[in-house]
Write a protein that binds this DNA or RNA. Sequence first.
DNA 1: ATGCAGATTCAACTGAGTTGCAAGTATAAT
DNA 2: ATTATACTTGCAACTCAGTTGAATCTGCAT
Lengths: 143, 143
Amino acid sequence: MSDLCDFPQLLGRQGVKPTVLRLAVLEVLGSSPRALRAQEILETIRAHRRVNKVTVYRILDDFTRRGILRRLALEDRASHYELACEHHPPHPHFQCHHCGQVQCLEPAPLDRMWAELQGPLGNRADRIDIRVEGVCHKCREIS
Amino acid sequence: MSDLCDFPQLLGRQGVKPTVLRLAVLEVLGSSPRALRAQEILETIRAHRRVNKVTVYRILDDFTRRGILRRLALEDRASHYELACEHHPPHPHFQCHHCGQVQCLEPAPLDRMWAELQGPLGNRADRIDIRVEGVCHKCREIS
DNA sequence: ATGCAGATTCAACTGAGTTGCAAGTATAAT
DNA sequence: ATTATACTTGCAACTCAGTTGAATCTGCAT
Ligand SMILES: [Mn+2]
Ligand SMILES: [Mn+2]
Ligand SMILES: [Zn+2]
Ligand SMILES: [Zn+2]
């Protein structure tokens, strides 16, 4: 969703070389309004250049471990990825179980919910993922 | 988590024959304190009888579509399953990213959160999934 | 030019789940 | 009891989304 970030600089701060493919992954995600599957990222890059899928998987994995990307576990078997920079704070997602579309929801309520969940345990919470499942407005019109 | 349900009756209400394997799946899940992977269910049943994995996957799939079970999409690639009967209302889950353990959290805050998420859309929400990721108390002690 | 580390590729593999069809089993007619 | 029918289970082969290890390539420093 909108590339406001300076990707070469972002990689520089992480001590990672801004290679063509690493930048390509970030640019594809930066210009997408929604989270993407590895497969979609691969195909988008391949419209312009030659890439091996292993390279893309390794970049996605590395970036996720570094916190540059977030990996979303949705109902599909394939993970979805999105930028995790300051312009895209963590937020809930909506997935239509009719067309499969994934939408990003507003980040607002997350902090409040975090507090409500701390529960009875000695566990340490690092991250909270909220996924709403239902039927999107487009699919509602059709049926 | 505790088998308070009459499984044969439960299946009867759904118009499904209470076969040995279908009951076995429900009993394994009914006596587990946590959500289980298909693989774990399969192995537990195999301690007592002969089963093909396809049968277990088909039963899990059928039960999930009927609303007898809930399928949880966690960080792992494998789905987890839990009973969805009246004794186990929907609730958030905690997953330790050190040992992978999945814990069920208290169901209380769900309704409140549901309201807060309705957002700017014409979407219809059918279900909300909350997953907290962190380090469980056991893994915290160790490290 | 040469050497080296990191980046990319290739082929082969894994693990979770799916598919189509054959075989088994229960129930219902005859 | 015998057959017909539907439903359930099993088997083999397949798909899909990654993962692994080793080989090559590339940019950069000496
Ligand atoms: Mn998002
Ligand atoms: Mn649970
Ligand atoms: Zn839709
Ligand atoms: Zn743990």
